[in-house]
Design a protein around this nucleic acid. Sequence first.
DNA 1: GTCTATACCAGGATAGAC
DNA 2: GTCTATCCTGGTATAGAC
Lengths: 204, 204
Amino acid sequence: MSETVDAPAERSESHPRSSARQRIVEAATELFSTRGYAATTTRDIADRVGIKQPSLYSHFAVKADILIEVELQTFRPTVERFEALHADKALTAGDRLGQLVEFDVRMLCTGSWNVALLGYLPEVRREGLAAGMAAHSHELFLVYRTLVGEALTENGRTETDLGTLTEVVFSLVEGIILRRVHDPHLDADRLAPAVRDAVLAVVR
Amino acid sequence: MSETVDAPAERSESHPRSSARQRIVEAATELFSTRGYAATTTRDIADRVGIKQPSLYSHFAVKADILIEVELQTFRPTVERFEALHADKALTAGDRLGQLVEFDVRMLCTGSWNVALLGYLPEVRREGLAAGMAAHSHELFLVYRTLVGEALTENGRTETDLGTLTEVVFSLVEGIILRRVHDPHLDADRLAPAVRDAVLAVVR
DNA sequence: GTCTATACCAGGATAGAC
DNA sequence: GTCTATCCTGGTATAGAC
């Protein structure tokens, strides 16, 4: 019936010597991603880490702060990478767009859990907890728009509605998040080039 | 901070003479879509309908049954429409694929709420409540695969990995669900043709 | 910084009168 | 079929000992 199964209540995967705070964040990353934020209890997290529920509050003031930290650790590295790819002027716009798409799809496919879905959960957005992710997503959208625009120019297409086409490209990439809900073990080596080719076909 | 704002506690939009059961379903459709299933309380639903919380249990045995009914009412009509579009042999495969995509995107853009997101909520899937939506989604995927396959043949592309390309096309269409989270008022007249053209470019 | 004990409250569901 | 009253569970967070 349900596609997911309760994992045995064992320790988090991080090295037992990593700080308790870090083990909390890693357990929460998994649980929030697989159960949702509202449906994950602080007891679930504590059990997974191997401590008692009130001990969480030695590290985080409220449950929401754990989610904030999950967001920070998840998206901080990728933003920097995007900037670098975006700025490499040695490549054509098409190549840069293609590389960005491939990188993006790989990130969405290969993390341990489908963390990107978190930013789209209603309860996360409603409680204003998706601010970090929303900022990341918006920044990424702007990068895509720039590259799509340059690629269109490169291909001699000046008539096209840039905003709409960027939305389509973005939709194509982020749609992978929803595919991964159906199949948690997407094959990045198969999908990343396929999505890249699709995006390049769309701007051609 | 938060993008969404609490609506005033007023009556459901359906005609006051429609059955209480139906008003419950409509209120729940909105609330589940905008707050998530776990984060919506039975009191929220009752308030919106204008009855007391225990009165819900004259119509539904448990909260989950309300969600099941929401799913049924949402997806029953669309499945039939898909079948019809799929079967119209008077058109080329490309045209049928294009029409299906346009119809699908319009459905995703124009319903009162972003109900399609419901089927991707972790708490809904974990509790086995997404069975109806999953079946609908799988059926739709098979339709897409058939049409993509026929369109590829039509265009003389026999080398392509059909499964992967169908995933890409599906990702492109369903990605609209995530776009709508960012912007609840997508312009269907602008996006539907754009996504259709993108899909046709991908299979060309 | 982790524990036990517990306060506090919210949410799902039931009982029984009308 | 709706109401009031209420039960019961479970979840967040705090107090205070070690």
